[in-house]
Write a protein that binds this DNA or RNA. Structure first.
Length: 426
RNA sequence: GGAGAGAUGGCCGAGCUGGCUGAAGGCGCUCGCCUGCUAAGCGAGUAAGGGGGGAAACUUCCUUCGAGGGUUCGAAUCCCUCUCUCUCCGCCA
């Protein structure tokens, strides 16, 4: 959420920036709502002031055993009016708030201007695409042939967009999670947390999934609980409604969670394989930091995510999301895209964003720079480090061999009982 | 699932026979004083959000004692609903 004062004072800028993201903002509507809100507030507050003063008078008279019946009768009318105005005021505040909740974050000045993902500039490439002397297969063909991935039975158990992992694949899933968590905790300074996999709606509002993206989430029937779409939600909300000590910043957290997404609106895309599932595992990186540090913290977090791919020896590139492709809450985002030879293209495997104070304002996460100063909103930065299912897909496609076997990256050997290659077992 | 207790400021903890209580006291923290250093001691200050005024320091008003409703001229204090925490019983991985 953007700051009310900021929006009021920079309406043209907000209008211009949101237009870059394809929104047509009704500025006059906002001005009307905002004025309405302030008008009502002024009126009801002056009545409350009057009531407070007269109440003091009543208290004194009662104490002196004097009669107060007359002014009590007078106050009855005032109180009734306050009640009316209070509900109008609350409605006006809610209206302004709802308007603000619809507004996306303002992109940072360094974000490239563009319409869609086709306009995202590549800012870095690492490694090289492996060469094959045969036609590389898609990961699902590799996995099914090895009898370690089973989409048919997953569909029987649940439905489309789920997968059943078997033997070395399920072991590799665990191995990847542990490899990533160990790397981030032992070498990158993150604190590991294991969170609830369901969150309440306050948490979903805090990170910006609600109210705009309700249809993307799975909600439990009869409960105010949602299956986490990403660990970003529970981890960021660890500090919701808290005032952090400035000396404790920055805070680094990493968490493994499964992620649940309805993928509404993506019908027909990536219907095969593990790329786009209703449930997938992810290791997330989340930072809380001082405002002046957030862009540096984003660069650092990106490097932490890259280290995972470098350790696995997977070729990737980094793109900087342009204004038209930027997510709702982000001020700046880098996507890491891993090379998938079976598909012959790069696919997003991590998305690292600086949310500036956008989430912090919604989630009310503040800090005190030093013990004598006022509170300020923290900045939040987060990114995948990495999406586990897509990492497995990348390994299956990049490390496949002519005989159908798959070479296991060396860093995973110790997590897989020394196994070095996945071969078809008769 | 059954029975009971509770939720107050950064933390602990009074108030809960309704009216100078935004809230005693303590801890912590900040500034100052003092003791040769440290520890202790003394004094002052120390909630958040919002509206108005001011260039600013600041000032003024409103709101907030788990959340939401109600009673009342007036609610941290009374009533209702919900959420969460704790204790006991039952059940269970």
């Amino acid at each position: 959420m953007l700051d009310l004062k900021f929006v009021r004072e920079h309406l043209d800028l907000v209008k211009e920036k949101t237009a870059q993201q394809g929104m047509d903002l009704d500025v006059s509507e906002f001005e009307r709502l905002d004025e309405e809100r302030r008008r009502l507030l002024a009126e009801v507050e002056s009545l409350k002031h009057q009531r407070n003063q007269v109440n003091r008078e009543i208290a004194e008279r009662k104490k002196a055993k004097e009669d107060a019946a007359e002014i009590i009768a007078e106050m009855k009318a005032v109180s009734a009016r306050i009640k009316e105005l209070d509900s109008l005021t609350n409605a006006a505040i809610t209206a302004v708030n709802d308007f603000l909740l619809q507004l996306p974050n303002i992109p940072d000045d360094t974000v490239p201007v563009g319409q869609s993902d086709e306009d995202n500039p590549v800012v870095k490439t690492w490694g090289e695409a492996p060469q094959f002397d045969f036609e590389p297969l898609n990961h699902w063909d590799v996995g099914v042939a090895l009898d370690i991935l089973d989409f048919k039975r997953a569909a029987k158990i649940t439905g489309a967009r789920f997968s059943l992992l078997k033997g070395p694949a399920s072991n590799m899933e665990r191995a990847l999670i542990n490899y990533m968590l160990d790397l981030h905790t032992r070498e990158h300074g993150y604190t590991e947390v294991l969170t609830p996999f369901m969150v309440n709606s306050d948490s979903m509002y805090g990170t910006g999934q609600l109210p705009k993206f309700a249809e993307e989430s799975f909600k439990l029937e009869g409960w105010d609980y949602y299956l986490v779409p990403t660990a970003e939600v529970p981890v960021t909300n660890i500090h919701r409604d808290e005032i952090l000590d400035g000396d404790d910043l920055p805070l680094y957290y990493t968490a493994y969670t499964p992620c649940f997404r309805s993928e509404a609106g993506s019908y027909g895309q990536d219907t095969r394989g593990m790329i786009r599932q209703h449930q997938f595992d992810k290791v997330e990186l989340v930072k809380f930091c001082r405002p002046e540090d957030s862009y540096d913290e984003l660069e650092g977090l990106l490097a932490n995510a890259e280290a995972v791919l470098q350790g696995l020896g997977l070729h990737y590139r980094i793109v900087s999301l342009c204004t038209g492709d930027l997510g709702f809450s982000a001020a700046k985002t880098y996507d890491i895209e891993v090379w998938l030879p079976g598909q012959g293209r790069y696919r997003e495997i991590s998305s690292c964003s600086d949310f500036t104070d956008f989430q912090a304002r919604r989630a009310n996460i503040r800090f005190r720079p030093d013990s004598n100063s006022k509170t300020e909103l923290v900045h939040t930065v987060n990114g995948s480090g990495l999406a586990v299912g897509r990492t497995m897909a990348a390994i299956l496609e990049n490390n496949q061999q002519a005989d159908g076997s798959v070479v296991i990256p060396e860093v995973l050997h110790k997590y897989m009982g020394g196994m070095t290659v996945i071969e078809k077992t008769a």
